[in-house]
């Protein structure tokens, strides 16, 4: 089995500043870390490796400095790392990022399971995982907190605000994971020493046969108009107990009260 984990290097702060003129993130002078949810995806892969001896490859798209995130992954015991790095990727939106990552995965040894974090703490769109699944024409399950491989299937628990689903999906599949999944391990001393000296494989746009029209700013259809925090969700109410008929009556009167119907 081959597990690919996609990780993103992000600034170490939950309060990234935004340049009001360009509406983009200001990244200068902030320490870089592995996106926290991606740490959980990485740990999930390492747990599978401990259990089944599967191969784990970690992939990131980013500037040359993103190498540090890959060394961290190596030190924890993954088999292989790949840095997708090319000026041509600069300015990629989530579509172009997903395209480049999908293209890279096509060029790796066939992946049975592709893991992503739930979302990146800087971009926050949660689009790249599902985007890659779409481009690779694979099934995707998001917001997973528990994962088990059984034969050629993956069994998961997918979490919502008020409950969870148990699901099963045939591999190859894409899964995005939550923080509750696990506690990421710390690297071993031998792992750290090995990772320090390791050579990091870099792949360019040409190396993954990417269509130059589909990457970078040129390949990005998104235009950011405005970035803002949406208003907090109101509490809502639950109508519980009683016969369906009565509950429906309560609902209708509430809706009338608010002049919704």
């Amino acid at each position: 089995m081959h597990v690919v984990v996609c990780i993103k290097q992000v600034p170490n702060t939950t309060e990234v500043k935004i340049n009001p003129e360009t509406n983009t993130l200001i990244r200068d002078g902030v320490e870089s870390i592995i996106n926290p949810f991606d740490e959980n995806a990485l740990e999930a892969a390492l747990v599978l490796k401990d259990k089944t001896g599967c191969k784990v490859t970690v992939l990131t798209m980013g500037p040359p400095q993103a190498e540090a995130a890959l060394r961290e992954a190596l030190s924890r015991g993954v088999d292989d790392v790949v840095l997708l790095c090319d000026r041509a990727f600069a300015g990629s939106d989530t579509w172009a990022t997903s395209y480049a990552i999908a293209q890279a995965i096509r060029n790796l040894e066939k992946a049975d399971l592709i893991l992503f974090g739930k979302q990146a703490i800087d971009g926050d769109t949660a689009q790249v995982g599902p985007g890659v699944a779409e481009m690779l024409d694979l099934p995707v399950i998001t917001y997973v907190r528990k994962l088990e491989v059984e034969g050629d299937k993956v069994k998961v628990e997918r979490v919502f605000e008020d409950g969870y689903e148990r699901m099963e999906v045939p591999m190859p599949a894409v899964i995005t994971v939550l923080k509750e999944m696990n506690v990421p391990r710390m690297a071993s001393l031998k792992g750290r020493m090995r990772a320090k000296k390791a050579e990091i494989k870099m792949l360019t746009a040409a190396a993954i046969n990417a269509d130059p029209e589909k990457v970078g700013l040129k390949g990005s259809p998104t235009r950011v108009v405005k970035i803002f925090s949406p208003p907090a969700k109101m509490g809502g109410m639950k109508i519980e107990g009683g016969e369906p008929q009565e509950m429906a009556d309560v609902l209708v009167s509430k809706l009338r009260e608010r002049k919704i119907i």
Partner: peptide, 18 residues
Amino acid sequence: ETQLEIRDMVREFAQERV
């Protein structure tokens, strides 16, 4: 180099876990 590595990793462990 090894000693510096040990220092960094145990420092991190102590902060994060202990």
